[in-house]
Simulated scan of single mutants.
Amino acid sequence: MNVLVIFTHPNHQSLSYAFLQQVLRGMGDNPAIREVQVADLYADKFDPVLVFNEEKRRRDMHADPRLAKYREQLRWADKIVLIYPIWWGRPPAMLLGFIDQMFASGFAYRDKKGLFPEGLLKGKSVVCVSTMKGPANYPLLWLNNAHKVLMRRALFGFVGMKRVKFFEFGSMESPKGRQKEKLDKVYRYFKAVAN
């Protein structure tokens, strides 16, 4: 199994970065994982801003040469792991800008007759590892699970990726947040995951 990890946090001293390290350690101890690549969007200085004008049209975004490396990584991966904080009830703007540009028509999906397009990234699985300051049940009780609906239905389901798992960790800035326990949980999952 080939795994692409998309890491989205500006600080390598953060808890999100500690989760990245546990994910990588778990995958390093997993014989089912052949190769791992990491796309660190802040370190890469990824530009999340969409620009459309006379020279750059939306219908050509699937072939933008600036994004070729990421398209190749997404094609190559059997599993995609996203690690990011939840800010204001949703992923960071950097990750959303990546999604806006990478999951483009002609690459991630193709329009066809009917209500839904044909997803072109079928067969891949996704794991979202996210942290937040608020309590773990905050997104469900206060936001009607908007984060999971956005990621599972509006994004991954739309492009054909049906297997989506979430680790959504709350109270991460609290001294009682059980951070070590949650880091261990992520390590154990990636050490054992088979597909």
Rank of each mutant, 00 (worst) to 15 (best):
L41R: 03
E55W: 14
I99C: 02
V36M: 07
L150R: 05
L155S: 08
R188Y: 14
L115E: 04
A104Y: 00
W87P: 03
G89H: 03
H12A: 12
Y138V: 04
P175H: 04
S125R: 13
S171P: 03
F156P: 11
V126Y: 01
D100N: 15
F166R: 05
E72Q: 05
P135V: 15
Q37W: 08
L115W: 15
V164L: 09
G134H: 15
K79Q: 11
F156L: 03
Q37D: 11
N30H: 07
F52S: 04
Q73K: 06
R57A: 09
G160P: 10
A18T: 10
I80G: 03
P117K: 09
A68V: 07
R34E: 05
M27W: 06
E54H: 10
V127Y: 13
K182N: 00
A108S: 13
F169G: 00
D78W: 01
G123I: 01
W76N: 01
L140V: 12
A43Y: 13
Q37T: 09
N144I: 02
N145H: 12
R58P: 12
A192I: 08
N30D: 05
F46G: 10
L140K: 04
G114I: 11
L183C: 01
C128V: 05
F156Q: 03
V127W: 02
I80P: 11
M161K: 05
Y70S: 02
E118L: 12
F190K: 03
D29W: 06
D44T: 14
P139M: 08
K180F: 10
A18H: 11
D44R: 03
K165R: 12
E118A: 09
F166E: 15
E35I: 01
K133R: 14
R178Y: 13
G106H: 02
K56M: 08
K69F: 14
R90A: 14
Y17S: 06
W88T: 07
D78L: 06
A146F: 12
L121D: 10
V38T: 15
Q37S: 13
P85W: 00
G170K: 00
A108C: 11
V3G: 09
S105Y: 06
R57E: 13
P175C: 08
Y70Q: 04
D78V: 07
A32M: 08
F19R: 00
K124L: 00
A93Q: 12
Y187V: 01
L24N: 12
W76A: 03
S125G: 12
Y42R: 07
Q73I: 00
K69Q: 07
V3I: 08
V129E: 00
N137V: 09
A104W: 01
V38G: 02
G134Q: 06
R178G: 02
P48A: 07
G160W: 01
M172K: 01
P135D: 11
N144R: 15
Q101K: 13
N30L: 15
L121W: 04
L95Q: 12
S171W: 00
L20S: 01
K45F: 01
P135R: 10
H147W: 12
P85N: 02
L141H: 15
Y84A: 15
I86G: 03
F46E: 06
R152I: 06
G119E: 05
Y187S: 02
A32C: 14
P91R: 09
